[in-house]
């Protein structure tokens, strides 16, 4: 069994360009981390019920719920954080203001604050993630061995994680300040890793490169890069090169097509096969370029194949096994 590349990490933040597989990878990673008897919390913060959809369960309330069992007896729990509820929780925690919270909500003020002030919303959400990381029960045991956060996309991730430094700029002293400092300390520590998902395409890779640079600049710990939905080349390197150059041996192919007895006109079949090979080779070449750009970022890279049958629980287990084999968990 390979060992994990992230033995000290408790908070795995999964970001990436929209649609590249953040939610899917976060779920697969949670299963991988849970396998062998661990308890992992999978948390979503965008109010989209992506976890419920993925695990095919009714919408999650703002409550920790068991979502799935992992291979070897582990458990994945889920939590869909609702910014409004989190605000009320926060008010209670710091100001004993839960009842006032109800009045504020009726006025539309809570809604106002959580939608209009993205900064405050992010304070609440990151605060919740860190609370889970730090939580200990009465016997000082940790209820969760790891937390996986299905985070906002690359374009917003640095701001999201860094929001508590802005608070520190506003609140000089007091409970808010120490809370903000505490959250930042965890997010900047080796106990956190921010992983980025990408595809082997120009725009997602560009976003990944920009994201890594921004995170580093903000002194946030960049984790691994998950290259998702890859399709293995169907031809070997030599044939790919010939296909690109338009030099595939047409005679040989034609003889084989005739021998196999397919198609009415061997010429059209050869044209089609050679044309498709050229497309395929061009695509593989683009992917190689993008893969090199990813490698040049100098982070651990994990790859997950495109599963053409779609993503259900069985597929998530498959992906989680691959992540474990590749050392991400």
């Amino acid at each position: 069994m390979p060992t994990s590349d992230w033995p000290d990490v408790m908070l795995h933040v999964v970001s990436g360009k929209g649609g590249t597989g953040k939610t899917t990878v976060a779920a697969a990673l949670a299963l991988a981390l849970a396998s062998g008897g661990k308890r992992v919390m999978l948390m979503e913060v965008e109010g989209r019920q992506g976890l419920a959809q993925l695990f095919d369960v009714p919408p999650l309330p703002y409550e920790e719920r068991k979502l799935a069992v992992a291979p070897g007896g582990g458990e994945v729990w889920g939590l869909a954080v609702d910014p409004e509820e989190a605000l009320l929780e926060y008010l209670e925690l710091f100001y004993n203001l839960r009842r006032a919270g109800g009045a504020l909500r009726r006025m539309g003020a809570v809604d106002f604050v959580t939608t209009i002030s993205p900064g405050l919303r992010d304070v609440l959400l990151t605060g919740k993630a860190v609370e889970l990381v730090r939580r200990k029960d009465k016997l000082h045991a940790r209820p969760y061995d790891a937390i996986v956060l299905d985070a906002p996309p690359t374009g917003r991730i640095t701001r999201f994680l860094n929001v508590n430094t802005e608070i520190a700029g506003v609140a000089k002293v007091g409970p808010i300040r120490s809370q903000a400092d505490g959250v930042m300390a965890v997010l900047r520590s080796p106990r956190t890793a921010v992983h980025l998902t990408t595809l082997l395409e120009e725009m997602p890779v560009q976003e990944t490169a920009d994201g890594v640079a921004e995170l580093e600049e903000a002194a946030l710990p960049v984790g691994g890069i998950v290259v998702n939905m890859t399709r293995p080349p169907q031809l070997d390197a030599a044939d790919l090169a010939l296909a690109r150059a338009g030099d595939l041996p047409r005679d040989q192919i034609e003889r084989a097509v005739v021998a196999a007895g397919i198609g009415r006109d061997p010429q059209t079949v050869v044209d089609a096969l050679v044309g498709e090979a050229a497309d395929h080779a061009a695509r593989v070449a683009v992917e190689d370029t993008e893969r090199q750009r990813i490698e040049s970022l100098g982070r651990p890279v994990y790859e997950l194949p495109f599963l053409s049958s779609g993503i259900d629980l069985a597929a998530l287990y498959d992906l989680s096994r691959m992540l474990k084999d590749e050392g991400m968990a």
């Binding site: 169907q234 192919i253 021998a259 397919i262 096969l273 050679v274």
Partner: peptide, 14 residues
């Protein structure tokens, strides 16, 4: 039949 492994790959690609 062992004939043209290349064509085998091309057919599978198709």
């Amino acid at each position: 039949s062992g004939e043209s492994p290349l064509t085998v790959s091309l057919l599978r690609l198709h």
